[in-house]
């Protein structure tokens, strides 16, 4: 009964392949198919319902001439830089502090990670109240006697995006801290001992030895943070609904508003295609450097 032919490559690990078919189909139909469909219809003048009536790049011309879209892009950049820099820096410092074999480490870790258990909507509402000048921090400080104290970032057009970033950092930093802590725990104890024998100060050990060794953890963290930046939407809706005026609008909200509220699918699709494009521009060179290089090296 022995089979002299080589087993067919396609039939090897058949169970595993069959099991992954649903996911492959989902990826192809939902992600790739949906993306292609969206890009295609962004060149049409679809209103409430999709229609294949091509108008060339009209939707894109209109998009880039719209002040609200430009404000959204600017806000996304500011928000992106802030959340990237601060969540990495604060997350790492907190993790390094927790790593000093302190007492009650579990308690502190729980406290720092707890905000992450809340959704962006809840986070947004909590911070909307805290930053409300009539009920929140400003009111409390004024009641304590500093009557000229003023802190109302959500009601000031020029700094509102920073107010939103505060809530985002409060919510997200705990997770980054935990990832970093896991990374720090993965460093061999002997490295520390060697550094101590050589008399290298602690901060130098961190910056020149530990951080370079934690490269994979940093990359994972970076991807998680970056994905969170591009899709930010619910936090803004809960805190300001894009206000005051259009000062805290973000691209994802523009897409939603124009697709469903303004009943202009073409415009919404054009905006979402631009969002996809920006992600691709960032991801492709990075992925090439990260994964493409290894084949040659």
């Amino acid at each position: 009964m022995s089979n002299s032919e080589r087993p067919n490559q396609l039939l090897r690990n058949l169970n595993a392949k069959v099991a992954s078919i649903p996911m492959i189909l989902t990826a192809l139909v939902v992600f790739v198919g949906g993306t292609a469909w969206t890009v295609l219809y962004s060149f049409t003048n679809s209103k409430l319902l999709p229609r294949l009536n091509f108008v060339g790049l009209d939707q894109y011309y209109r998009l880039w001439a719209t002040p609200r879209w430009l404000v959204s892009i600017e806000n996304l950049l500011i928000y992106g830089v802030i959340s990237l820099v601060f969540s990495l820096v604060i997350g790492f410092i907190l993790a390094a502090l927790l790593d000093q074999k302190i007492r009650f480490e579990d308690t502190f870790r729980t406290i720092f990670l707890y905000p992450f258990a809340l959704s962006f909507i809840v986070t947004g509402l909590v911070w909307q109240w805290l930053l409300n000048p009539d009920f929140g921090i400003q009111r409390v400080v004024r009641d304590l006697g500093w009557t000229n104290f003023s802190f109302d970032p959500l009601y000031n057009s020029s700094i509102v995006i920073y107010g939103i970033s505060i809530a985002a950092l409060w919510q997200g930093t705990g997770l980054i801290m935990c990832l970093m802590l896991a990374g720090l725990r993965g460093i061999d104890e002997d490295i520390w001992k060697a550094a101590r024998v050589d008399g290298i100060p602690m901060w130098k050990t961190y910056v020149f030895i530990i951080i370079p060794m934690m490269r994979p953890v940093f990359i994972t963290t970076l991807v998680i943070i970056a994905a969170g930046i591009v899709k930010v939407y619910d936090l803004v809706v809960a805190q300001t609904s894009g206000g005051p005026g259009i000062a805290s609008e973000v691209p994802a909200k523009y897409v939603y508003d124009y697709m469903f509220f303004a009943q202009n699918l073409g415009q919404g699709f054009a905006a979402s295609t631009m969002m996809l494009l920006s992600v691709v521009i960032v991801i492709v060179p990075w992925a090439y450097l990260e994964f493409g290089g290894k084949k040659h090296g």
Partner: peptide, 19 residues
């Protein structure tokens, strides 16, 4: 007006009142 024009108008005036 269509909802599209209405929305553009809303964007303009909410910005105008807040700025």
């Amino acid at each position: 007006l269509s909802q599209d024009s209405q929305k553009q108008k809303e964007d303009l005036f909410s910005e105008f009142f807040a700025k």
